[in-house]
Computed example of a mutant assay.
Amino acid sequence: MRIEELFKQHDVETHPVVKFNTALPLDLGAQNEALSKVDLNNEASFDQFIFNQIASSGKDVGIGGYGEVRSLYSRSELFEGEEPRTIHLGIDIWSKAGTPVYCPFQGEVHSFANRNVHGDYGPVIILRHKLMDLEFHTLYGHLSKSSIENLSVGQKISTGDQFAFMGTYEENFHWPPHLHFQLIRNMQGYKGDYPGVCKSSGKEDYLTNCPDPSFFIY
């Protein structure tokens, strides 16, 4: 059974991972020609591209990216290889640094780390959740350094608890402030990390293991 269907079937309360009233769908896909005019390795340029769109729309945040094919990862060696990784496995919520992040459903800290490599998550937290007999995980990337201070594996976090903040450009390792939010069925042995972007050849398996997390956002 799909995770979303199980929550609906049992009428289980959840909490949005970020509080907002209105959202602008943001396209960072490879077909967006506007991206070709942006210096993605320049903080001001990348920041303006994202936040000027949000401001001009009058919306609170920018949201998008699940399953999106992106060429922008070529700016980092982290995603390169014989077959580059281009498929985004989570949803990005773009907002100012310091924006609070909330627990969507009761759980505990599975793992955390500071992935301090250009293009990576920077500070990241992974929570483990269980509903009935179903165990699943949620990943929160591009957080502030303060979010992982005084954190411990196994620490309980309740539905609606504010437990992290979005990081600055420097903290979240050279991305404009945003939350990468990802739903993961099986962690496959990973701790403090899980791929947020996959190769096209692995798309089917990864998107099956990482279903659309929109249910915990809207």
Results as ranks from 00 to 15, higher is better:
Lys156Met: 13
Thr99Tyr: 04
Glu108Val: 15
Gly107Met: 11
Gly119Thr: 08
Ala113Tyr: 01
Lys156Arg: 11
Ile148Thr: 14
Leu89Thr: 07
Pro84Glu: 10
Thr99Asn: 05
Met132Tyr: 11
Arg85Pro: 05
Asn114Val: 10
Gln106Gly: 13
Met132Pro: 00
Ile157Gly: 09
Lys156Pro: 04
Asp133Ile: 13
Phe163Gln: 13
His129Ser: 06
Asn116Pro: 01
Ala113Val: 01
Ser95Pro: 00
Gly98Thr: 12
Ser95Ile: 07
Ser152Trp: 01
Gln162Met: 15
Asn114Ile: 07
Leu127Asn: 03
Glu135Phe: 08
Phe136His: 02
Gln162Asn: 14
Arg128Tyr: 00
His137Lys: 06
Ser144Phe: 07
Val101Ser: 10
Cys103Glu: 04
Ser95Arg: 02
Asn114Thr: 01
His137Tyr: 15
Leu143Phe: 04
Ile91Trp: 02
Lys145Arg: 07
Pro123Met: 13
Gly160Met: 13
Phe163Val: 15
Glu135Lys: 11
Tyr140His: 07
Leu151Cys: 11
Ile125Val: 13
Ile125Lys: 03
Glu135Asn: 08
Gln162His: 09
Glu108His: 06
Gly90Asp: 12
Val124Asn: 02
Asp92Trp: 06
Cys103Ser: 13
Tyr140Gln: 02
Tyr140Phe: 15
Asn116Asp: 14
Gln162Ala: 15
His129Ala: 09
Val153Lys: 13
Pro84Asn: 15
Gly141Ile: 00
Gly107Pro: 04
Cys103Asn: 12
Lys156Gly: 10
Val101Glu: 09
Gly122Asp: 04
His110Ser: 07
Phe165Asp: 12
Gly122Trp: 00
Ser158Trp: 05
Pro104Asn: 09
Trp94Val: 08
Val109Met: 09
Gly107Lys: 05
Pro123Ile: 12
His129Ile: 13
Gly160Leu: 15
Met132Gln: 14
Thr86Asp: 14
Lys130Glu: 15
Leu134Phe: 14
Leu143Glu: 06
Ile125Gln: 04
Asp120Pro: 00
Arg128Asn: 07
Arg115Trp: 02
His142Lys: 01
Asn150Lys: 08
Ile148Val: 14
Lys156Glu: 14
Asn150His: 07
Asp161Tyr: 04
Glu135Asp: 15
Glu135His: 06
Gln162Glu: 15
Tyr102Lys: 10
Asn116Arg: 01
Leu89Ile: 04
Tyr102Gln: 11
Asp120Ser: 14
Ser95Gln: 08
Asp120Leu: 06
Asp133Phe: 10
His118Phe: 09
Arg115Ser: 06
Gly98Met: 14
His110Ile: 12
Met132Cys: 10
Leu134Gln: 14
Leu131Glu: 03
Ile157Pro: 05
Glu108Cys: 06
Leu89Asn: 01
Ser111Thr: 11
Lys156Cys: 09
Ala164Pro: 03
